[in-house]
Lab assay of single mutants.
Amino acid sequence: ENVVSAPMPGKVLRVLVRVGDRVRVGQGLLVLEAMKMENEIPSPRDGVVKRILVKEGEIVDTGQPKIELG
């Protein structure tokens, strides 16, 4: 899985990584606000952040790609 998608609709509060960052499985990639709760979205695997496809403040839909890992 190279693309991390939104598990639920919500607002991107914070992006916790930058392009080029090495990430580990379970590491937080971003914080999504859904139903007035903050949810940290974890990396599904070890890898390197290739692209960030969302911006802080953006509203995302379920299944929308957010971060691409290499």
Rank of each mutant, 00 (worst) to 15 (best):
V48W: 14
V60C: 09
M35W: 09
M37H: 10
L29Q: 01
D46W: 07
V60P: 02
M37E: 12
G10M: 04
V12L: 03
I41Q: 02
R18N: 13
E58V: 05
V4I: 12
E1M: 13
R51P: 03
G47R: 02
V3G: 05
K11W: 07
I67F: 08
V19L: 09
G10C: 09
E1C: 15
P44Y: 04
L53N: 05
V60E: 02
V17I: 08
E1Y: 12
V3Q: 08
S5W: 10
G63N: 10
R14Q: 09
E68I: 15
L13S: 06
A34S: 13
V19T: 07
V48Q: 08
E38C: 10
G63H: 10
K66I: 15
V60D: 02
D21C: 09
V60A: 04
E56I: 13
G57A: 04
S43T: 05
G47A: 10
D61E: 14
K55H: 12
A6G: 06
I67G: 02
E33D: 08
A6M: 12
P9L: 07
P65T: 08
R22C: 14
M37V: 13
L30E: 01
D21T: 06
S43K: 00
A34E: 05
E56T: 09
K66C: 15
E40C: 15
E38I: 12
D46E: 10
R22Y: 14
V12A: 00
A34Q: 09
E33Y: 14
M35D: 14
A6T: 06
M35F: 13
K11C: 09
K36R: 12
D61Q: 14
G70Y: 15
L53C: 11
S43Q: 01
G10W: 04
D21R: 01
G57P: 01
K50L: 14
R51E: 07
G47S: 05
R45T: 10
V12S: 00
K11R: 11
G57F: 06
P9M: 09
R14L: 07
E56D: 08
Q64G: 05
V15I: 15
A34T: 13
V23P: 00
V48E: 07
V49S: 00
T62E: 12
I41H: 01
P7N: 12
V25P: 08
N2L: 14
L53Y: 12
V12P: 01
G47D: 02
K55N: 10
G26Q: 04
V48P: 02
L30Q: 00
P9T: 08
L30Y: 05
V19K: 06
R22M: 13
I59F: 14
T62S: 13
L32V: 10
A6N: 04
G70M: 14
I59Y: 15
R22E: 11
G63L: 08
I67Q: 02
L69D: 01
L13E: 06
V48A: 04
E38L: 12
I52M: 03
D61R: 15
Q64E: 07
R24E: 10
Q64I: 07
K50C: 13
M37W: 07
E38H: 10
Q27W: 01
P44S: 05
E40G: 03
R24F: 12
V54G: 02
D46S: 10
V12T: 02
K66E: 15
R45N: 08
G28D: 04
P7W: 10
V4M: 05
V54R: 00
I52G: 01
M8C: 12
E38S: 08
E68Q: 10
M8H: 12
E58N: 06
R22T: 13
E58K: 03
K11V: 10
R18Q: 13
N2A: 11
G47C: 05
G57V: 03
N2Y: 15
V12F: 00
Q27P: 02
L69C: 04
R18H: 12
V31Q: 01
V17H: 00
E56H: 06
V15D: 06
P44Q: 05
M37F: 09
G28I: 15
V3K: 06
V17M: 00
E40M: 14
V3S: 07
R51Y: 05
L13G: 03
R24Y: 13
G70A: 14
L53K: 03
L69P: 02
R18T: 11
I59R: 10
V4N: 03
G28K: 09
V23G: 01
Q64H: 09
R24T: 13
R51G: 07
V17G: 00
G28H: 09
M37P: 03
I67S: 03
M35T: 08
V31K: 00
Q64M: 09
P42L: 14
Q64V: 08
S43M: 02
P7G: 14
N39Q: 14
P7D: 11
K36A: 14
M37I: 13
L13W: 00
P42K: 15
V48L: 09
K50E: 09
D46P: 07
P65K: 08
I41N: 01
K36P: 04
L30R: 00
G57N: 08
M8A: 09
V3M: 14
V60S: 03
G10R: 00
G70D: 14
T62Y: 12
N2K: 09
I52N: 00
V31C: 06
P7E: 10
L32H: 00
V49H: 00
E58R: 01
V31N: 00
V60T: 11
S43W: 02
P65E: 07
L13Y: 00
P7Y: 09
G20F: 04
M35P: 04
E1Q: 13
R45Y: 13
L16H: 04
I67A: 02
P7I: 10
R22A: 12
L13M: 07
E33R: 03
L53G: 03
G10Y: 00
R24D: 07
E38M: 10
G26M: 05
K66D: 07
V23C: 07
V25T: 12
V54K: 01
V54E: 01
V31R: 01
P42A: 12
E40Q: 10
R45K: 11
Q27F: 04
E33G: 08
V60G: 01
K11F: 08
I41D: 02
K50I: 15
